[in-house]
Design a protein around this nucleic acid. Sequence first.
DNA 1: AAATGAACCGAAAAGGCTTTCAGAGACGCT
DNA 2: AGCGTCTCTGAAAGCCTTTTCGGTTCATTT
Lengths: 342, 342
Amino acid sequence: MAQATGPSRSQPATLSDVARLAGVSVATASKALNGRSQVRAETRQRVIEAAERLRFRPNQVARGLLAGRTGTVGLLTSDLEGRFSIPILMGAEDAFGAGEVAVFLCDARGDAIREQHHVRALLGRRVDGLIVVGSRTDPRPSLGRELPVPVVYAYAPSEDPEDLSIVPDSVGAGRIAVDHLLACGRTRIAHITGDPGYLAARERAEGARAALADAGLALVGEPRFGAWSEGWGRAATAMLLDQHPDVDAVLCGSDQIARGVMDVLRERGHRVPEEVAVMGFDNWRVLTSASRPPLTSVDMNLEQVGRAAAHALFTAIGGARRSGAESLPCRVVIRGSTAPLS
Amino acid sequence: MAQATGPSRSQPATLSDVARLAGVSVATASKALNGRSQVRAETRQRVIEAAERLRFRPNQVARGLLAGRTGTVGLLTSDLEGRFSIPILMGAEDAFGAGEVAVFLCDARGDAIREQHHVRALLGRRVDGLIVVGSRTDPRPSLGRELPVPVVYAYAPSEDPEDLSIVPDSVGAGRIAVDHLLACGRTRIAHITGDPGYLAARERAEGARAALADAGLALVGEPRFGAWSEGWGRAATAMLLDQHPDVDAVLCGSDQIARGVMDVLRERGHRVPEEVAVMGFDNWRVLTSASRPPLTSVDMNLEQVGRAAAHALFTAIGGARRSGAESLPCRVVIRGSTAPLS
DNA sequence: AAATGAACCGAAAAGGCTTTCAGAGACGCT
DNA sequence: AGCGTCTCTGAAAGCCTTTTCGGTTCATTT
């Protein structure tokens, strides 16, 4: 806790410091460091050495002021808590960081006022674009068409079809899940899922039903909507087993639900996956790998959603505007809870 | 997917636009908008109206260039995946966002090279300071003393005692956990924890042992180090029950371990909390609320760590430098898995 | 020897804002 | 009338970099 005066904290070197040390003008120093051709090799070398000696790093702020482009983007999340935002954010950060773009992170905490505040602040900082990350796949209000920079919506699409949104293909996710269970030879498939207020729940159920219909089959009973919790998974499974003791697969709306389902199956003596196969959605490691057996799950490829959003924004900044909701495929990650019927 | 030309994308208004519309000079316009006193009320009003009409937002880039302070900080995480970084990041973002500071997010992916790259990029953008967030509490290499801006380390302290680090009090966490169990009347307490390579595991064990010693007691057996997984929790519990069937509390190194512990306890017919109390660390909602019964856990107050780091950085930017590792207290969140012995 | 061209360098402007300082006008006082 | 004192306004400098364009030097050509 010493109240030290600390190291120098000297101002970083500027281009004119470098120029002075190298004995040239700032213009020449700039050209030398930026690889412009109108400077003698020997002079360039002198400048480069001077720059190294002074640990010169060009001031991106000044550069941004001049160029009109700052090389920054705003990443607007509605809730960092939600585990869906994080992988998207990682993907976007990754895609930008590889280039020379820096990311401003803003968390609106699910509050529209705060979101508006952040948008204003970001525009004041002259970001080149915005990515808006939602916490669920239901459409959300647009930030508006009047913004001076391009905007890309990720995970939660904009309500305005003129905006560009990148979303996971929830219907397709339901389809590939069922396809996998069918490939395992299962035919009596039940669906226990979460809150019907969530579009993701409804779309996955719709995809599952469609895939079964394509195979001339139907779900065992109706889809059981409830909550995104283990508790609901347990309760729904108990009811399911009472009504349909012959199910050979349960497709669960989330990994949490799946854990609850598997617990009850085990307690009631149904072996997984030999007698009943179980699948989840989200591919949330901590749940899938800790369950017994490890849980097969549909991964929404969220990191890829983030990367795609970043890429779309990048090209939009370059001038190529797109619009509408573009959906990205999900993938099945197979683990021990599903296996072919023997 | 229409290839539209899109809305105007017109350049944002500048101060001179405002000044022209209001019929004053840019200098006067600036003073009017910034509340400087040397401008007549009526003139100020004219300028403000003009600014509103043009939707003028002052360019923070230009302002930053002039002031030498950009009002930005860099948030450097080593892995966004890790769930410990996120709450810290939320706390920091929150503390800054309330003021007028914007946060650059950079994820080094645990790679020192990439970290160095990000530091350089951030310094090039002239951030006013840096927060370095680690993924575990073990000390990490310092970024160095030669940086032109203040740095605060959060969660993972710097190896250099001259740096300022904000960390959770792991020893204290172990103590308060045991204190809670003692308050519940438990005296035969076992400790099943994670990877001994983690300082957090060792410090929590040490705190637990110290608190027991203060009460004239000792752990049942040695602390059982292993892995941060449910699987280890299950395995260790099986061994524990064989050797010490009379334990009345298990303090677990993490919530994941605790879930494994509780599963085996239930399977073996030990009632929780009546016969055996169980506690975890981390207070990870998805685990604590889904377990049966809900899990009592020690919360590391990570969001507060983030906020404290932000605050420390803010004052350091203001000139007040501190150093050393400052630790913040943790807190016990009581749920159904612990209760007084009847 | 003079003219041409190439190669290299530097002055200056631009980008948007804040701040300083000098000037302009209004007012009261001697 | 002349002077000092206020209050307000605007010109200009400065922040740091890039880029344009005019100028200098030197070698080459006629």
